[in-house]
Design a protein around this nucleic acid. Structure first.
Length: 257
DNA sequence: ATGCCGGCACGTTGCCGA
């Protein structure tokens, strides 16, 4: 079972790359962030032709999340369950015995901005949602663009970044609160010491210089930890012509009893 | 120096991203 997440920074622009990646990597599930498409614009037919069902939740211009799956997903959730959903950043679905939650956590802009306050409130809301979701779905995968570098090890220059947005103590505490629910960072589980990035700024030749952050994560619930078999980040996708600024992150799960 | 790059929108510049 291979499950992946990719912030594509416009699915309209990146659809050919997504189709190529699906064909080459054959994931069972691919969660997309920043589709920047309305539901009416979502390329469901092209993805279906490639062998994938889709759950999608979008809006004009900004945000937008989706779950692509080889087997038909069930029990879809598009946006927060209470329906109060101004920004399309959350969707979920069941795939086989797994519950998959795809998130595009707000960026926060800077620690002094209203957007940062919104980000922390959004993360608190996510925690409450997940606490409830876990009651019904103990085998839960939570993945996507978290817009948080979990530790200094996930930052190319921790001194320069300091306590700026993506690295601030309050954001990391919000992520730690998810770990307290029983979520585990699958990449870190396999590679406690590794330094690897999932995002490189388009500017200042950051990819060429390999200066980035690891902010795209695949967290698994405690029940799934024994199934963690392999994980990685596909840097090759970031090398493409006209790439997203994020690389796909992926996780291979073995069979569970 | 707060821009660099890139996507988007009733576009020719401003906004947002991270």
């Amino acid at each position: 079972m291979k499950i992946a997440a990719w912030n594509v920074n416009s699915l309209k622009v990146r659809l050919p790359q997504v189709l190529d990646w699906l064909a080459a990597q054959q994931p069972d599930v691919l969660c997309l962030q920043e589709t920047k498409l309305t539901d009416a614009q979502f390329p469901a037919e092209a993805l279906r032709a490639a062998g994938y069902h889709g759950i999608f939740h979008g809006q004009p211009t900004y945000n937008g999340v989706a779950i692509l799956s080889r087997v038909a997903p069930t029990a879809p959730l598009c946006g927060w369950p209470d329906g109060n959903d101004n920004q399309a950043r959350l969707c979920a679905a069941s795939v086989g015995s797994l519950r998959v939650v795809s998130v595009y956590v707000p960026n926060g802009q800077s620690v002094a901005s209203d957007k940062y306050v919104y980000k922390l409130a959004w993360l608190a809301r996510l925690r409450a949602f997940l606490a409830d979701e876990l009651l019904r779905h103990p085998r839960l995968v939570l993945l996507g663009d978290f817009n948080i570098a979990p530790t200094d090890r996930d930052v190319y220059d921790p001194v320069a970044w300091g306590e700026e947005v993506l690295c601030s103590p309050a954001e990391r505490a919000a992520l730690a609160a998810l770990h307290e629910l029983g979520f585990h960072d699958s990449f870190r589980h396999l590679y406690p010491e590794a330094q690897a990035w999932s995002w490189w700024d388009y500017r200042a030749a950051m990819f060429r210089r390999d200066l980035g952050l690891r902010i795209d994560l695949i967290l698994v619930s405690t029940a799934l930890v024994p199934a963690i078999a392999a994980a990685g980040i596909d840097r090759e996708a970031r090398r493409a012509e006209r790439p997203s600024d994020h690389a796909p992150v992926w996780l291979e799960l073995g069979d569970l009893p």
